[in-house]
């Protein structure tokens, strides 16, 4: 039988166990702090995307187009958005702007909200209602003619454009997959991040059908690194990718 001190909680620590128990408590305290620091310092860079609250609310005029995700070819810019740029449009939170944009397809509209930027990705989070997206006076000039860039083989990640643009940091990756799927289901722009720029663009808007803003087969592949083939069409300064879902494969 061991002659070790016998511990009974309500009698307090026996002399022989005091040092060890105290040492355990102190190492828990210090070790916990050190471990937390090590884990926290190991986090990946979440990228430069962000809401540009520093720009303030921006109001621009442009022509609405649908891919079916709503985009706006800016014809009259603002302080931070010059004419000629093409913006993806989103509503507040995880809400798309499709319902508001449908009635304005091909027409001149005023869009007002906060800009989100990440590299070559530009998105506007519209304020609510017609104040965010409503018809503008005047005739719509011709929207930029879509330019077919051919069929491409690409690698990268499918995600939602709003989180990826900096609404969440990080707004991509496996841990964010459910959120990305939820955003896309709710009509936010589905985006493909390419490993390298294509004609100067790294973020490509994924094309869908009027019924499905993104092909349903793609949800299983969101947030994974994939290789795929697809047709790329330039809309203004935005590339739209029509993914051939049969060609999707996981990269190593």
């Amino acid at each position: 039988m061991s002659e070790r001190p016998f511990f009974v909680g309500y009698l307090g620590l026996p002399r022989g166990l005091r040092f060890m128990t105290l040492a355990l408590a102190v190492s828990l305290l210090i070790g916990g702090g050190l471990l937390a620091t090590v884990i926290a310092r190991a986090k990946d860079d979440p990228g430069p995307g962000t809401f540009r609250f520093d720009y303030g609310r921006q109001t621009v005029t442009g022509i609405v187009a649908l891919t079916p995700t709503p985009i706006l070819h800016v014809t009259k810019g603002s302080e931070h958005i010059e004419a000629g740029r093409t913006l993806m449009l989103s509503g507040q939170g995880k809400n798309g702007a499709l319902l508001r944009a449908r009635a304005l397809e091909g027409r001149l509209a005023n869009a007002s909200g906060i800009l989100l930027t990440r590299g070559d990705l530009d998105m506007m989070q519209l304020v609510c209602g017609e104040a965010g997206l409503g018809p503008a006076d005047g005739d719509a000039p011709m929207a930029p003619e879509p330019e077919d860039l051919g069929r491409w083989e690409l690698a990268g990640e499918i995600c939602d454009g709003k989180c990826a643009a900096g609404a969440m940091r990080p707004g991509t990756g496996i841990a964010h997959k459910a959120c990305a799927s939820l955003c896309i289901l709710n009509g936010l722009p589905p985006v493909f991040i390419s490993t390298r720029p294509i004609e100067g663009e790294t973020f490509l808007l994924i094309a869908g059908t009027p019924e499905d803003p993104m092909p349903p087969e793609l949800y299983d592949w969101v947030a994974e690194y994939v290789a795929l083939k697809g047709q790329i069409v330039r809309h203004g300064d935005l590339l739209v990718l029509d993914i051939d879902t049969a060609t999707l494969e996981r990269t190593p």
Partner: peptide, 18 residues
């Protein structure tokens, strides 16, 4: 576990309209 497929560069397979 996957690594970012940096080694795969975009490649045009067919030209526009083809």
């Amino acid at each position: 576990r996957q690594d970012w497929p940096d080694n795969i560069a975009p490649r045009r397979i067919t030209e526009a309209g083809s």
